[in-house]
Amino acid sequence: MDLKSLYQEILNEHNLNPSHKGVTEGASLTLQGVNPSCGDNIYLQLKIDENGIITDGSFNGSGCAVSQASVDMMLDDVIGKSREEALRLASLFMDMIQGKADGEALEELDEAASLKNISFMPARVKCAVLGWHTMQEMLGNGKSAGQGSVSHCEVKND
């Protein structure tokens, strides 16, 4: 199996069988992320404990395979991490999408690194970053992170 096929398989698995689609009971934060250019619409929920650790998370909504898979992969990466670590991973993801990160740095993104080549499909970049940008907004770092490729996202508080 070549690398492109493996990446496609990872994307399909997260889209068809998402681990985190649903509702998080007792969520600390909920935020809607909308990509008006293609209709992606998610509600991201995070449960954060008193130490600032993301203990659970989920998403609901609809959208293309890329947006749904990306937010599911993001939740795999950030659950169990601190706010700061989640924001650092989001920044790394944005750098990857903009072609500014590769190699060992991407290992931290685990399966989310499979979206690296989305940068060659400009129409899909918006879809891939929606969940990550929504999380940045939610955790209070959306203004300074990921400028440019995510400026099209409209994020609404519930």
Rank of each mutant, 00 (worst) to 15 (best):
M1R: 10
M1I: 10
M1W: 14
D2E: 03
L3R: 06
L3G: 01
K4I: 15
L6P: 08
E9V: 13
E9F: 14
E9S: 14
E13A: 10
H14E: 00
N15H: 12
N17Y: 08
N17S: 13
P18A: 12
P18Y: 08
H20V: 03
G22H: 07
G22S: 14
V23H: 06
V23N: 10
T24F: 02
E25I: 04
G26M: 14
G26R: 15
A27R: 11
L29I: 12
L29V: 05
L29A: 09
L31A: 02
L31T: 05
L31K: 14
G33H: 07
V34G: 02
V34P: 07
N35G: 11
C38G: 01
C38Q: 00
G39W: 09
G39M: 03
L44H: 11
Q45P: 07
L46M: 00
L46P: 03
K47Q: 15
K47H: 04
I48W: 06
D49N: 11
D49A: 05
E50Y: 07
I53G: 04
S58P: 06
N60E: 07
N60F: 11
G63E: 08
Q68H: 10
A69P: 00
V71E: 05
V71N: 07
D72Y: 06
D72E: 04
M73G: 06
M74F: 09
L75D: 06
L75M: 02
D77A: 07
V78Q: 10
K81I: 12
K81T: 13
E85R: 14
A86R: 04
A86C: 10
A86M: 04
L89C: 13
L89E: 12
S91D: 05
S91N: 07
F93P: 02
F93M: 03
M94A: 10
M94F: 08
M96C: 01
G99Y: 07
G99F: 06
K100P: 11
K100M: 10
A101E: 07
A101N: 01
D102T: 12
D102I: 02
G103E: 06
E104T: 04
A105C: 04
A105Q: 00
A105P: 02
E107P: 01
E107S: 08
E107C: 00
S114Q: 06
L115I: 04
K116Q: 15
F120H: 10
M121K: 09
M121N: 11
P122D: 15
R124A: 06
V125T: 08
V125F: 14
V125N: 03
V125A: 11
K126Y: 12
G131W: 00
H133M: 13
H133P: 05
T134I: 14
T134V: 03
M135Y: 08
M135S: 02
Q136T: 15
E137W: 02
M138N: 04
M138I: 01
M138A: 01
L139Q: 07
G140Y: 01
N141T: 05
N141V: 08
N141R: 12
K143S: 10
S144E: 11
S144W: 03
G148L: 07
S149E: 05
S149Y: 01
S151E: 09
C153V: 08
E154R: 15
K156W: 08
D158S: 02
